[in-house]
Amino acid sequence: MNKARRRQLSIFLGLAPALSVLTVLFVGPLALALIQSLGYAPIFGVREFPTLRFYTAVLGSTRFRLAFWYTMLYALVPTVLSTIFGTWLAVAARARMRGVRFLSFFVRLPLVVPYLVGAALVVALFANGGLVARVLFAVGIIQNTGDFPRILFSAGGWGIMLVYLFKQVPFTFVVVSSVLAGIGPELQEAARTLGASPWRAFRHVVLPRIFPGIVTSSLLVFAFNFQSYEIPLLLGPGFPGTLPVEALRRFQLPTIARRPEAMAYVMIITTLSGGILFLYLRAYRRWERSRGGV
């Protein structure tokens, strides 16, 4: 064996534990889901492999199309908003001002709170009998707590998006803060002496430097929002659910023979979110290369 081969092998062996975990946890289940969605699911009494029946059933339904657009909405809006607010707070927290340390502690706080607790909080605050409704009632803005606009359990998805924001603004804040810490205030100051207002110094000098961090965090946030089911299940409307919620519901179908549709959903969700992330990253890389590839 020559030297290069031996090095390759040792790198491979070094990665083996991680790779095997990845295989067991990721590739294995995905392969299983693929096979079942294509019609090999003896536990459901389905032995039609290979068939696209389950895919056509899913893709042809209005339910799916609605679920897709709502999933995009609930994923995208919190991603955009938390990226903007998280970045904004991270930049603000760099100012040498009193209260900044408290601010950055306070902003991080939701990170240690589980999503489910976030959901409970939103319910306690914004449900029709919730705190906000009661306060509005007490000060006389609404005549009846029942008049409070229906924020939760509606197709608008306000509740879902609020919980996501509650968790994801802090997440973006932490990621962008750590990137900012690496670049120091000097570049901004150089830009200021060269005639840039604070906003333009940020826009032209700081933003391009922290952009990779922003892309990464927004990617993670979007992927999570697109795929997670518990918050939409808890706070979303009965119909339509998001894609993951619909997938879950297919698992619970009384007609057992239709359950491979759930696996078709799983495969479609994986492909869609993978595809969206890929397109997003490719667009970013193109932009980056056009900027000289820093």
């Binding site: 100051e189 150089a190 830009a191 200021r192 002496t193 005639g195 820093v294």
Partner: peptide, 18 residues
């Protein structure tokens, strides 16, 4: 600072890397 019309060369090189 942006209206003082000052040219400043900093201690550490702070060219805009991008």
């Amino acid at each position: 600072p942006e209206r003082r019309r000052i040219g400043m060369v900093f201690q550490q090189h702070v060219l805009f890397p991008h």
